[in-house]
């Protein structure tokens, strides 16, 4: 299953990048895609779990919220950089997390980096180290909101 997913992804990516549809090039595309998929399918799809459509919809709804948070974060950064007095008070904070899967942890780490005032420094079992800029110490509340949304995306039944 992971072999087929990797093969199709590589093949579609090749065809989109080359933009040519002659017989010889398509033959090379299939050949190289088979070769690459044979070597790397266990890296590309670690373990196939049946995702439901509901989780995919939750993920699609998560993206606009994340984009809005990125815009808020950038307005904050612009305000900090332009202000001559530079209103910052950096701090390292440990937060707890209940996420277990690699996908969930990756999504959580990248989201924390992109959302206002926080950057992920280290991620371990059940614990993340967050570096916060800014003078208001509301980091933990925002991070728990992100985590709640990601748990909804992951689903609880197939962890």
């Amino acid at each position: 299953m992971s072999f087929i997913i990797t093969f199709l992804s590589v093949l579609i990516f090749w065809i989109l990048l080359s933009g040519e549809f002659s017989g010889l090039l398509l033959g090379f595309a299939v050949l190289y895609s088979l070769l690459v998929a044979y070597f790397t399918h266990d890296l590309f799809v670690e373990k196939f779990r049946g995702y439901k459509i509901r989780q995919f919809v939750k993920f699609l709804l998560y993206i606009p919220w994340l984009l809005w948070q990125i815009i808020i974060a950038n307005v904050q950064i612009v305000r900090i950089v332009i202000d001559p007095k530079m209103p910052i008070d950096p701090e390292m904070v440990y937060c707890k997390t209940s996420l277990k899967t690699d996908l969930g942890l990756t999504l959580l780490g990248n989201s924390i980096t992109l959302t206002p005032g926080t950057v992920t420094v280290d991620i371990g079992d059940g614990e993340i180290l967050v570096h916060g800029i800014g003078e208001d110490h509301k980091l933990a509340i925002i991070d728990q909101e992100i985590e709640k949304k990601i748990i909804e995306i992951e689903g609880t039944d197939n962890v």
């Binding site: 990125i70 950038n74 612009v78 992109l114 005032g117 950057v119």
Partner: peptide
Amino acid sequence: VIASIGVLRLPDFYTRLHAAGKA
């Protein structure tokens, strides 16, 4: 440009990461 000025102005490495990673 804001990210570049932030990398130049902010006081230490971790705070520079904020400007570099977001802006």
